[in-house]
Write a protein that binds this DNA or RNA. Structure first.
Ligand SMILES: [Zn+2]
Length: 152
DNA sequence: ATAGCCTTGAGG
DNA sequence: CCTCAAGGCTAT
């Protein structure tokens, strides 16, 4: 299975290019994109809490990639995908990534998705209270439940 | 919700 | 011009 541009670092599907700092397929890009929750007050990503399927160690391939969004998301980050803020530039009044609003390729250090963990972000002393996270997409907030093992 | 396709625009 | 990735759109 030699695809001309290689395979997705996350799931193994044919790549469609570099996405958020990693060579991935369109689908993994989409998951990463959809999974962004942002605290609009501080412009900081907050990971949406997905439900682990196998205790956080799922193998992700093209067939299993939809079974555990959290592990898939983690793998996206592990493979280098990162972003400062996934933003709707029109809603937030920002331009798309550029010199002024660059993609930040720093690793979001070992972030374990958790609804009340904003990772290594250091809030200004005065204003530590985070606003309610808002999902920056057209999709509703997702609550996942565990499900039985698939036939792989 | 997923994933393929489209539009946009920065950068070269 | 051209490339290509961010973000939007939409059929399934
Ligand atoms: Zn993939």
């Amino acid at each position: 299975m030699d695809y001309p541009f290689g395979v997705c670092k996350v799931c193994g599907a044919p790549v469609t290019g570099n996405h958020y700092g990693a060579v991935t397929c369109e689908a993994c890009e989409g998951l990463f994109k959809r999974g962004q929750v942002v605290d609009t007050a501080h412009q900081v990503p907050v990971w949406q809490a997905y439900q682990y399927y196998e205790g956080g160690h799922c193998q992700i391939n093209i067939k299993t990639r939809t079974l555990c969004k959290e592990c898939r998301y983690d793998k996206c980050v592990l493979m280098g995908m990162t972003i400062e803020v996934v933003q709707n530039p029109y809603e937030l009044g920002h331009e798309r990534p550029s010199k002024e609003w660059p993609l930040d390729h720093r690793r979001i250090a070992g972030s374990r998705p958790s609804s009340n963990d904003t990772d290594s972000y250091e809030a200004p002393d005065e204003d530590k209270v985070l606003g309610d996270p808002q999902l920056i997409s057209n999709y509703p907030v997702i609550v996942y439940r565990q499900r039985p093992p698939p036939d792989i």
